[in-house]
C-alpha cells in the first residue's frame, strides 16, 4: 500500500545514540509502592497503616495521594496524614465511594501507591510564634483526621511553651464517633507532658448525649481574642467556625480545605478554589491549609467557594 513508504521513512530513528541520559526507572521517584501493615476498623471509618519505604515524614495538615495497586479507579485519592512513625504512615479514612471503599478492603501486605507528603499543612512554628491564648482544634466528621498528627507534634514541644489545647470534634452519630479511639492515646500523652488539654465531642443525632454541631461546642467554649483556631471539615463548617471567630474578634484561624484533585502536586490546575479576593488558588499547592482571611476574608460577609466542598 502507498502509505507504507511514508511510514517507514517516518520512523525517524537516529543512526547513533545520543549523549542523553538513558531511560531507566528513576531512583528519586516521589511515588512509592507501600504495603498495608494494618487496617483497623473504627466505627464507620478505618485507620489504614502503610509501610512506605523511604517515607520522608510530613507535617500535620499535609496529605498524600493513595491508590491501591489493583485499583479499578483511574485517579488516586487524597488523604491527610493521620499518624507517622518512621516508614509507617497512617490515614483515617471514611468510605464514601468507590476509591475509599477499595482501600477499606485492602488486606495486609497488599500494595498501595503513595505520592507525598504534599501541600502545606498547619505551620505550628508560625501558629505558636503568635503566642496564642489557646489552641482551639475543630474537626468535623473525617475532618478530624489530621489532628492526631497535630497532637503528636504538640507532644514534642516543651510543655511550658504550650498554650491550653481545646479539642472539639463533631460527628454525625456515635458510630462515626468511634474514631475517637485513635485520638485518646495522643491526648493522654499530651496531658502526661503537663499540657492542659480538653477534648469534647458532640453528635448531630444526639447519640452521645445532646444533639448538636461542633459549632455548638465552640459557642459554649467561648472564643476570645488571642485564641488560635485550627479546623478541618466540611466547607460549611469552616465558614461557620470563622464566623464565630470574627464575631469574637482578635482570633486567628487556619482551615484545611478540600477540593477534587487529580495530581495533588500542582500540575493539573484542577483543584482550585476561589479566595476571598476573587483569585483562584490550587488547594494542593497553596493549601490544603489556608489562613482564614485568605479564604473567607476578614469581614463578616460569607464568600461562596464553589467546588470547595465534596
Amino acid at each position: 500500500m502507498a502509505a507504507e513508504v511514508g511510514l517507514a521513512a517516518r520512523a525517524h530513528v537516529n543512526p547513533a545514540p545520543e549523549l542523553q541520559p538513558s531511560p531507566r526507572t528513576p531512583p528519586n521517584s516521589g511515588c512509592r509502592l507501600a504495603r498495608v501493615a494494618a487496617r483497623q476498623k473504627l466505627g464507620s471509618m478505618f485507620v489504614l497503616r502503610l509501610r512506605a519505604p523511604g517515607w520522608p515524614g510530613g507535617a500535620p495538615g499535609q496529605f498524600a495521594l493513595l491508590r491501591h495497586e489493583a485499583s479499578a479507579r483511574f485517579l488516586p485519592r487524597a488523604f491527610s496524614l493521620h499518624a507517622q512513625d518512621g516508614e509507617l504512615v497512617s490515614f483515617l479514612i471514611a468510605p464514601v465511594g468507590p476509591g475509599t471503599e477499595e482501600l477499606a478492603e485492602a488486606g495486609v501486605g497488599e500494595g498501595v501507591h503513595v505520592l507525598g507528603p504534599l501541600g502545606h499543612g498547619f505551620d505550628l512554628t508560625e501558629i505558636l510564634a503568635g503566642t496564642p491564648r489557646r489552641l482551639v482544634v475543630v474537626g468535623g466528621g473525617v475532618g478530624v483526621a489530621p489532628f492526631r498528627l497535630l497532637l503528636d507534634r504538640l507532644t514534642t514541644h516543651a510543655a511550658a511553651t504550650l498554650p491550653e489545647v481545646v479539642v472539639l470534634f463533631g460527628f454525625r452519630d456515635d458510630v462515626q464517633a468511634e474514631c475517637l479511639a485513635a485520638f485518646e492515646p495522643a491526648v493522654d500523652r499530651l496531658r502526661a507532658r503537663g499540657a492542659a488539654v480538653e477534648l469534647e465531642t458532640i453528635c448531630e443525632d444526639g447519640s452521645l448525649g445532646r444533639a448538636g454541631l461542633v459549632t455548638t461546642l465552640l459557642q459554649e467554649v467561648g472564643l476570645s481574642a488571642g485564641d488560635a483556631i485550627l479546623a478541618c471539615g466540611a466547607h460549611a463548617m469552616c465558614q461557620a467556625v470563622w464566623d464565630l471567630g470574627l464575631a469574637a474578634g482578635g482570633v486567628r484561624a487556619w482551615f484545611s480545605l478540600e477540593a477534587g484533585m487529580a495530581c495533588g502536586v500542582g500540575s493539573c490546575h484542577g483543584c482550585v478554589i476561589r479566595l476571598a479576593d476573587g483569585s483562584l488558588a490550587k488547594v494542593c499547592r497553596r493549601g490544603p491549609v489556608f489562613g482564614a482571611g485568605e479564604v473567607f476574608g476578614e469581614s463578616r460577609h460569607p464568600c461562596a467557594v464553589p467546588g470547595g466542598d465534596r
Binding site: 485517579l75 477534587g260 493539573c268 483543584c271 482550585v272 478554589i273
Partner: peptide, 23 residues
C-alpha cells in the same frame, strides 16, 4: 487567562473530564 470556574475536574469510568480553561 484565569481559567474556568471550579469544579474543574471529575473522575469517570476509566478516565476523567477536565474543564481547566487554559489558565
Amino acid at each position: 487567562r484565569p481559567g474556568n470556574d471550579p469544579p474543574r475536574i471529575v473522575e469517570v469510568e476509566a478516565g476523567m473530564l477536565n474543564s481547566i480553561g487554559l489558565p
